[in-house]
């Protein structure tokens, strides 16, 4: 039997009258690179927040690495084994990158020398080594993303949650991150990633789940998708977008600019 890294049953989250996630049954096998896709407002970030304990579900159960995330004690054990890059990051404005990584390393109980060695390597790899005197509040969005990823990887977790990790990151760093994550999964760890960049998801992920209006509408392997075409084609089909019916804006196609 395949071991599941993530499993949810009837996972639901409501914000007032609005249901962001509805009866989600998700199964992510350990050692897979799982891409979680969906249009804007589909419920991807809400799901990842529930899976990592940032918000609690209205209904349903969550099991991460075989432990109940809704139990306070068990969720602490889970948090020792996971790394997270949340949607709006989790950084302290008044720390430098090194200081933040040192804090994260200490929280995970890493020895001082290990923290120092890993943080230096991560910062060099992600091209943040020149910014050692800058505070996080002075970082650009892309730099913050890279630092957040460095912090998520620092403790060498078994499971990595990444919410839009490539958003705002430069092309060079993007390739570095892709290689880093591929190696991470190759050694048997799991990555759960959301992204709008379908090319990257297609290149990296072994499994895909598509969520729309809070409901999971497709959960399959990348091989199966690619046997029928591309991920983009599949996504547009299941997400319901029909490009042939897109209305044209006549005025935009006219030669003269409006006065």
């Amino acid at each position: 039997m395949t071991k599941l890294a993530i499993e949810t049953r009837s996972l639901t989250r409501k914000f007032g009258d609005r249901t962001a996630v509805s009866s989600l049954d998700l199964q992510v096998e350990a050692g897979t690179f799982y891409g979680f896709l969906g249009p804007n407002g589909a419920g991807k970030s809400t799901t990842i927040k529930m899976l990592t304990g940032l918000i609690s579900p209205t209904e349903g159960t969550i099991s991460v690495l075989g432990k109940n995330m809704l139990d306070n004690n068990e969720s602490l054990e889970v948090k020792r084994s996971i790394g997270v890059v949340p949607e709006n990051l989790a950084l302290f404005d008044n720390l430098t990158a090194v200081e933040y990584l040192t804090f994260v390393g200490r929280v995970h109980g890493l020895p001082k020398a290990t923290i120092q060695q890993r943080s230096d390597e991560m910062l060099n790899l992600l091209s943040l080594e020149q910014e050692t005197k800058k505070l996080v509040l002075e970082y650009s969005h892309g730099m913050r993303k890279k630092l957040s990823l460095a912090a998520a990887l620092l403790a060498n977790p078994k499971l990595l949650f990444l919410d839009e990790p490539f958003e705002g990151v430069d092309a060079v760093a993007s390739v570095t991150i892709r290689d880093l994550l591929s190696g991470f999964v190759a050694k048997g760890s799991t990555v759960f990633l959301t992204s709008h960049v379908l090319d990257i998801v297609e290149r990296l992920c072994s499994h895909v789940g598509i969520i729309m209006n809070g409901k999971i509408i497709l959960q399959t392997s990348m091989k199966e998708i690619q046997s029928k075409g591309t991920l983009e084609k599949c996504f547009l089909e299941v997400a319901g977008a029909d490009t042939s019916t897109v209305r044209k804006l006549d005025w935009l196609e006219q030669a003269e600019q409006p006065t």
Binding site: L76, K79, R80, L89, A90, L91, F92, V107
Partner: peptide, 14 residues
């Protein structure tokens, strides 16, 4: 702490 508090929520600290 502002957004930094998220680091505490995600952390395994008692």
């Amino acid at each position: 702490d502002r957004t930094g508090f998220r680091a505490f929520v995600l952390s395994p600290i008692r």
